[in-house]
Simulated scan of single mutants.
Amino acid sequence: MGRVEELQQQTVWKSDPHTQVKHLVYRHYLQCWMAKILQKFPEATIVDCFAGPGIYSDGLAGSPIVVARTFLEHSANEKFSRLNLICLEERADRVEELRRQVAKLPRSPKLNIQVLPPGTFAEQQPRLSALAHRPRPNVPVLWLIDPFRLKSAPFSLIRQCMAGPRDEVLFTLFTNELHRFCEREHFDKAMTPYFGGDHWRAAVAGDRRARTRKEAFSAAYQDGLKALGLFSSDFGVEISSQSARYHLILATHSEAGLKCWAPMAWKLDSYSGEGASADSLDALTLFGEEAVESRLDAALRNYAGTEQRWETLSSQAARLNYMDKHLRKSLSDLASKGLAFRVSPVDARSAWPEGCTVRFYAPQDLVDEAS
């Protein structure tokens, strides 16, 4: 039985290497998200919109169980507030299996798991949103949207999931299918609602190489999110260190979300922070960290002639999917060339403390005109 038939016919199916990577992304992001959200707010909600049966035939846990175990096993769990986990699955047989898997979990008064009756995301989104926000109007909500098909999660539904001021979405973007079928006749009828507009066409018209085009599709999707005033980033789930099978897209109202995303990305991809395959997760980088700050370095050089607060620089780094440790390294590299100088504080225990102010210079500023 082929993979497609297995997904269509069986209640439980085998996992694949991409699933392992995706779940690691979930785990690492949730570790940070839970630590920040569940120690700040009295309650939060995670909605798994395509929950599945909760287990794979080879024993790997499904996404709802991954979420629950991340909460239960978190090192800061004792300090956590209440987490509501809402699960939606379309098929009745998988709903039944998911309930069996949930029943095996250890009980916690701070973890409320609700497995809804069978239903589709498109039909149930308004109800899901009402349930997710019911505890308090501004409750933080993280939506996990990992559909089987493009048509199951049009951009209009993603936009609805971001209606709350503290809503976040983790979305699986099918960049491999987009690359393979984007030039097929009538496929545009699926593409436009999927992207929420026809801005995807630029990716089709550009470089046709797989990796480049898939990255262009991811960038185009994020452009749609940013047009809504959202922050966004991505992570490529690759096929044996080749081009991405799909991209996981983060959409958030706050840069704080990006501050959790970047550590996850750099932990799983220590060279570029952009993507990983199952066979590359434990591989040592060939290049170390000498080249990883190139985009950040270029962005910092653009500040030549100005003074910038640490908060601005840290925000810029987060938007480029870098961490503060990368920012400090880039600043030190620029300082060694005379292109960055800490204005304040005058005395500090470290070179680039939080709250500092940095003055930037251009290479031409260093030229001795008298020579």
Rank of each mutant, 00 (worst) to 15 (best):
residue 181 F to C: 12
residue 78 E to I: 08
residue 346 V to K: 15
residue 133 H to T: 06
residue 161 C to G: 03
residue 104 K to C: 11
residue 365 D to P: 01
residue 357 T to L: 05
residue 121 F to G: 06
residue 197 G to V: 11
residue 336 S to E: 15
residue 230 L to M: 09
residue 235 F to E: 03
residue 21 V to R: 14
residue 124 Q to V: 11
residue 344 S to E: 15
residue 337 K to L: 15
residue 22 K to E: 08
residue 60 L to T: 02
residue 176 N to C: 02
residue 304 A to E: 09
residue 211 R to D: 15
residue 330 S to D: 04
residue 29 Y to M: 06
residue 30 L to Y: 12
residue 35 A to V: 00
residue 245 R to C: 09
residue 70 T to V: 06
residue 178 L to W: 04
residue 221 Y to H: 08
residue 28 H to R: 15
residue 53 P to V: 04
residue 192 T to D: 13
residue 314 S to T: 11
residue 341 F to P: 00
residue 146 D to H: 10
residue 235 F to K: 09
residue 28 H to L: 15
residue 68 A to N: 00
residue 61 A to C: 08
residue 51 A to F: 07
residue 16 D to E: 11
residue 240 S to F: 05
residue 212 T to D: 12
residue 248 L to Q: 04
residue 98 L to E: 01
residue 317 A to F: 03
residue 29 Y to P: 06
residue 189 K to P: 00
residue 155 F to A: 01
residue 319 R to T: 12
residue 130 A to H: 12
residue 201 R to D: 01
residue 231 F to P: 00
residue 208 R to V: 06
residue 302 N to Y: 03
residue 338 G to P: 13
residue 159 R to S: 13
residue 272 S to M: 11
residue 252 T to G: 08
residue 70 T to M: 01
residue 353 P to D: 02
residue 229 G to W: 10
residue 25 V to C: 15
residue 170 L to S: 01
residue 23 H to D: 11
residue 167 D to I: 08
residue 57 S to I: 03
residue 146 D to L: 12
residue 87 C to D: 01
residue 341 F to L: 12
residue 273 G to C: 11
residue 163 A to P: 07
residue 282 D to H: 14
residue 148 F to M: 14
residue 243 S to M: 04
residue 52 G to L: 07
residue 106 P to M: 09
residue 266 W to L: 04
residue 245 R to W: 11
residue 49 C to D: 02
residue 244 A to F: 06
residue 145 I to L: 08
residue 194 Y to H: 08
residue 1 M to D: 06
residue 20 Q to H: 15
residue 48 D to Q: 13
residue 48 D to R: 12
residue 302 N to C: 12
residue 7 L to V: 00
residue 105 L to M: 05
residue 25 V to N: 09
residue 215 E to L: 14
residue 23 H to C: 10
residue 346 V to P: 06
residue 249 I to T: 07
residue 305 G to C: 01
residue 220 A to D: 04
residue 315 S to M: 03
residue 209 R to M: 03
residue 19 T to H: 09
residue 277 S to I: 07
residue 291 A to Q: 15
residue 136 R to L: 15
residue 294 S to M: 08
residue 346 V to N: 10
residue 123 E to F: 04
residue 295 R to L: 13
residue 65 I to K: 09
residue 52 G to Q: 00
residue 314 S to H: 07
residue 255 E to H: 10
residue 323 M to S: 05
residue 345 P to S: 09
residue 335 A to C: 14
residue 291 A to I: 12
residue 268 L to D: 03
residue 328 R to I: 00
residue 244 A to Y: 04
residue 364 Q to S: 13
residue 25 V to F: 09
residue 48 D to M: 11
residue 131 L to S: 09
residue 27 R to G: 12
residue 234 D to I: 00
residue 144 L to H: 10
residue 110 K to V: 07
residue 230 L to C: 05
